[in-house]
Design a protein around this nucleic acid. Structure first.
Length: 824
RNA sequence: GCCUGGGUGGCGGAAUAGGCAGACGCAAGGGACUUAAAAUCCCUCGCCCGUAUGGGCGUACGAGUUCAAUUCUCGUCCCAGGCACCA
């Protein structure tokens, strides 16, 4: 018997796949296509356990679908622009480009050592000119259509990364990448008009049945759609000003108005009044406060009176106007109507500054006394103090009042979104240059298409400064104006790296295409991605950006589909000692170590068996041992009998089989069914568990050393089934054992075993027998016995009779082939 | 505060459409083999009472629906993730 030597066989089979280009795939009209994609890695230098898990799950699905006869596209590439390359350059004096490419080369060998089957011809590195040149072209097309624009605005800035961050990239006031506290800066930046698509992105969340609800609900939450009305108030002199509210049912309870400090009227209104100084001081004070700090709910509500009044369009009442620190300029119109009786924030403000409270919605069971209230009443109720709307339920009143406002020209039904446009300028070097030229004479100009690509120079010195190193590199930024030919200057900011990952899945379908960004024919053949697999951490970042970008490309005629990802599986994190694996926690398990000690098959198997894909995976060294043990058990099972079995023809059906043969045949078919169904719904851990059961059954079978021809044939059938079912999970050991059994290895990855529904069911079934819902006995019965017969049979059982003694049977419930419950 | 998930043995986790709770694995204990160890194999393994046949309890907690609830309904508690002065 040969020992199980993972390294030897893994190298052997990886070479075999490589030489035969097993995973190479092209469009094939005779087969159904299946595009399987895992989120591509950042080439940090090493594959980590999160990758191993993600790509193991993907590889199982890819191999399984291929065995099922689908034409599977399974590509891999590198999200290769980004900060760490620049940091390495500063720390170690290497070029970001060479650092990145060296990492890619090493990590590619790591992926190959894990046995993942990709079509490497389609490999992409986003830092290659042949990739980002097309992104620059897309940028220009978007610029033409007004989807890209430049504006000055307060932006999130990470002092550590020395660059701007999009809203999505700020987590609780901190940088998503390095955790540094984000500050606000006023900068002129390039933006993608994602808000133009806010409504569609929001509404389509409900048309993504293949996505986890968790993710779509996070996206909806982020987009933040709310229905309301813009109400036109006016100043005493008739100057109109507009506020947004979702609660027009409380319009009769407005007792003051509040403006955001940045609102133009905040400074204008008090001009020339006694309030002028005070207001100016207040605005200045709020401005200097940190914006992340200002967003905090705990912040005390503060404000000052502007000295001016507004007129409520419904009541004609004169209402004081304040400037307040809790009103945001970026949302709605930057001004609100305040209804202290029915809004908690307004209530707090009113109590602070002794402003009146008018109740306009009353609960059914009590009367609200404005003087005695200690918080706002925000629940449902009936309108009071509301003129013609009195007596109406407030939910209905919302629509009635909007209708009335619209009729009188006092307001407009509006929808507001929380989503902001995506700021994509980064003051960094290692990214795709933004193809724009600034000319003193001609202004902001797109780089002419014929001058693309704008190549990122790879030979410059990188220093940590508050702007892009490109800005210190005249060879890059000095350029002639494409219009007037005078000296002009290139944009030196680069694009957010999330732009590259917003369309890489499209480029995979035609990675070699050089006549344009995308070969529409091939894109249409493969898109949409049938199954996307990746971490939950991109729920609103990458996944939202990609949905947006794909829509834009759809409108540019580059893509046929609207939504890029049909089905999404979000895998959980890898946890050790109760925390996410990270260098700082010192709880990292190195995949190299695992491969060296146990081999790739064990590493894969453990990641897949220890927990279902979408849950967090608790790392366990003993669990890894267990997986290794199982593989050795499979190895011994086949290896020890290979000589005998390889000359026998295998059987998984044997009409008239009896005893152990029959039991094993049933188990084989049951297992094939179970594993097939489990794989279809990604229950990989239970699929493995049932293969383990089959292995256990076969061990029991061989214990009796059956020597007759039929038994051996069935045994071989069992072993072959185990191997076939196990192939997607642990392809190396399976290939080796398959060859040992004399099988055709080329067909191993192309045939998924089928099962016979008739052989899944056994003739005898175990019936659970309950009395009054409590299990009292079990008994064997013929399959499909009539309810009457089963009921009769069960009454004869000794234990059951004991429990029925002296009692009258009231009712008998029979679940065919499963259970009888006697009620007495 | 709001929106998602989730809470099952010592542990990771099963139970697909309301029908035997704890599959599979890990750990633990006992045994076989061995000069010994490793490896391997066998047995036990939710809790309580009982020598045992057996009985009671048990899927966060409390109610409810049902012949039957881990599964459905309502309420409560706890944990994780997301959003949060968004008008």
């Amino acid at each position: 018997m040969n020992p199980y030597e993972p390294h030897v066989i893994e190298e052997k089979w990886q070479k075999y796949w490589e030489e035969r280009e097993t995973f190479r795939v092209d469009e094939d009209p005779s087969k159904k296509k299946y595009y399987l994609l895992e989120m591509f890695p950042y080439p940090s230098g090493n594959i980590h356990m999160g990758h191993v898990r993600n790509y193991s799950i993907g590889d199982v699905i890819a191999r399984y679908k291929r065995m099922k006869g689908l034409n599977v596209l399974h590509p891999m590439g590198w999200d290769a622009f980004g900060m760490p390359a620049e940091n390495a350059a500063i720390e170690r004096g290497v070029q970001p480009a060479s650092w990145t490419h060296a990492n890619i080369d090493y990590m590619r060998t790591q992926l190959k050592r894990l046995g993942f089957g990709y079509d490497w011809r389609r490999e992409i590195a986003t830092c290659d000119v042949d990739y980002y040149r097309w992104e620059q072209l897309m940028f220009l097309k978007m610029y033409e259509r007004g989807i890209v624009y430049r504006k000055s605005s307060p932006v999130n800035f990470c002092p550590k990364c020395q660059t701007v961050l999009a809203n999505e990239q700020v987590e609780g006031g901190n940088c998503w990448r390095c955790g540094e506290e984000v500050v606000q800066k006023e900068l002129t930046q390039w933006f993608f008009a994602i808000t133009k698509y806010a409504d569609e992105l929001y509404e389509y969340c409900d048309r993504l049945p293949g996505w986890p609800e968790k993710v779509t609900s996070m996206q909806k939450n982020w987009i933040g759609k709310s229905y309301g009305v813009e109400v036109h108030f006016s100043l005493e002199d008739g100057t109109p000003f507009t506020i947004f509210t979702t609660r027009p049912d409380t319009l009769y309870g407005v007792t003051f108005m509040v403006l955001a400090p940045e609102h133009p009227l905040s400074a204008q209104l008090p001009a020339g009044t006694a309030q002028e100084k005070e207001v100016a001081a207040f605005i200045e004070k709020v401005k200097t406060q940190d914006r992340s700090f200002r967003g905090e709910i705990s912040l005390e509500k503060e404000g000052v009176f502007t000295g001016k009044y507004a007129i409520n369009p419904l009541t004609g009442n004169k209402i004081p106007i304040y400037v307040g620190n809790f009103v945001l300029m970026e949302y709605g119109t930057g001004a609100i109507m305040a209804v202290p009786a029915h809004d908690q924030r307004d209530f707090e403000f009113a109590r602070e500054y002794n402003l009146p409270v008018i109740v306009t919605i009353t609960p059914k069971d009590r009367i609200l006394d404005p003087a005695a209230m200690d918080c706002a009443y925000v629940d449902e109720g009936v309108l009071v103090n509301s003129d013609r709307f009195n007596g109406m339920n407030n939910r209905e009143a919302i629509n009635s009042i909007i209708d009335y406002l619209e009729e009188k020209g006092l307001g407009t039904r509006t929808v507001n979104y929380r989503l902001k446009d995506w700021g994509i300028s980064r003051q960094r070097y290692w990214g795709a240059p933004i193809p724009i030229i600034y000319c003193d004479e001609c202004g902001t100009l797109p780089v002419p298409e014929k001058d693309l690509p704008v190549v990122l120079p790879v030979d410059l010195e990188i220093k940590m400064v508050g702007r892009s190193p490109l800005a210190d590199h005249p060879e890059f930024y000095e350029v002639d104006c494409p219009v007037c030919k005078k000296k002009a200057r290139r944009e030196t900011d680069t694009m957010d790296t999330f732009v590259e990952s917003s369309w890489y899945f499209l480029r995979y379908t035609c990675a070699d295409y050089d006549k344009g960004p995308l070969d529409r024919k091939r894109v249409d053949h493969w898109m949409p991605v049938d199954q996307y697999i990746g971490g939950i951490e991109h729920a609103v970042l990458h996944l939202l950006y990609s949905r947006f970008f794909n829509r834009v490309l759809n409108e540019l005629g580059l893509v046929g589909v609207r939504e890029p990802f049909e089905n999404l599986l979000t895998q959980g994190m890898v946890i050790k000692d109760g925390a996410k694996m990270s260098k700082s926690k010192g709880n990292v398990v190195d995949p190299n170590y695992l491969i060296e000690k146990y081999g790739a098959d064990t590493a894969r198997l453990f990641c897949l068996f220890a927990s279902p894909p979408e849950k967090d995976l608790d790392w366990s060294d003993q669990g890894v041992e267990g997986s290794f043990r199982f593989l050795q058990r499979v190895w011994r099972l086949v290896n020890e009998r290979a000589d005998v079995l390889c000359v026998i023809k295998s059987l998984d059906q044997l009409p008239g089989a009896q005893g152990d043969n029959k039991l094993l045949i049933h188990k084989i078919h049951k297992t094939v069914k179970k594993v097939t169904e489990d794989l279809e719904r990604f229950h990989l851990n239970t699929a493995i568990a049932s293969i383990m059961e089959l292995v256990n059954t076969i061990y029991k079978f061989v214990e009796k050393e059956p020597a007759d021809e039929a038994s051996r044939a069935v045994l071989k059938g069992g072993c072959e089934t185990v191997l076939r079912l196990l192939f997607p999970f642990v392809p190396h050991i399976v290939s080796e054992l398959w060859e040992m059994l004399g099988g055709d290895v080329a067909s191993l990855g192309a045939i998924w075993p089928s099962y016979d529904e008739g052989l899944v069911k056994e003739e005898k079934v175990m019936i659970a027998v309950q009395v009054n819902g409590k299990l009292r006995d079990t008994c064997e019965a013929d399959r499909d016995m009539t309810q009457e017969d089963l009921g009769e049979m069960v009454l004869a059982l000794e234990k059951i009779q004991k429990h029925l003694e002296g009692k009258q049977v009231k009712k008998t419930i029979v679940v065919p082939n499963k259970l009888v419950n006697i009620v007495c």
